[in-house]
Amino acid sequence: MLLLLLLQISASCLWLGRSEVVTSFEHSCPQFFFKETPPNEALEPKNAARICQRYKNKYYFATLYDRDRRIPVYSAYLYQPGSGKRPKTWMVEPQLMDSVYPSSMAREWVLINYYNVTLEQISKSQAVLVDYKNLTGLNRGHLNPSGHHPDNSSRTATFTLTNIVPQNEKLNGGAWKNYEQQVMIKETQGCATTYVVVGAVPGNNYIAGGRVNKPSHLWSGVCCEMDSDKELKAWAVIAENDRNDVQFVSLGELEEALSQLYGRDQVSLFDRDCPRD
Rank of each mutant, 00 (worst) to 15 (best):
M1C: 09
L5K: 15
L5D: 12
A11T: 04
S19E: 08
C29M: 00
F34S: 01
P38N: 11
N40A: 08
L43Y: 03
E44Q: 12
E44W: 13
K46T: 10
R50T: 09
R50S: 05
C52Q: 00
K56I: 13
Y60A: 05
T63N: 03
T63C: 12
R67S: 04
R69P: 12
R70E: 06
I71Y: 06
L78I: 04
P81S: 02
Q95G: 08
Q95N: 09
L96M: 07
D98W: 09
Y101P: 03
S103N: 10
S103D: 10
M105W: 03
E108I: 02
Y115R: 11
V117R: 03
L119M: 14
E120K: 12
Q121T: 13
I122H: 02
L129D: 10
N144R: 06
N144T: 07
G147H: 14
H149D: 05
D151G: 15
R155F: 01
R155Q: 13
T156C: 08
A157H: 03
T158S: 13
L161I: 02
T162I: 09
Q167G: 00
E169R: 08
N172H: 01
G173L: 10
A175T: 07
E180F: 03
V183I: 09
T188W: 02
Q189G: 09
T193I: 07
T194C: 00
V197K: 02
V197Y: 03
V197H: 06
V201T: 01
Y206F: 11
G209S: 00
R211C: 15
R211K: 10
V212K: 00
K214F: 09
P215E: 08
S216P: 04
L218T: 05
M226H: 09
E231K: 13
W235G: 07
A236L: 09
D245A: 15
D245Q: 15
Q247L: 12
V249D: 04
S250L: 04
E256R: 00
Q260W: 11
D265F: 02
V267P: 01
V267Y: 15
D271P: 02
R272E: 09
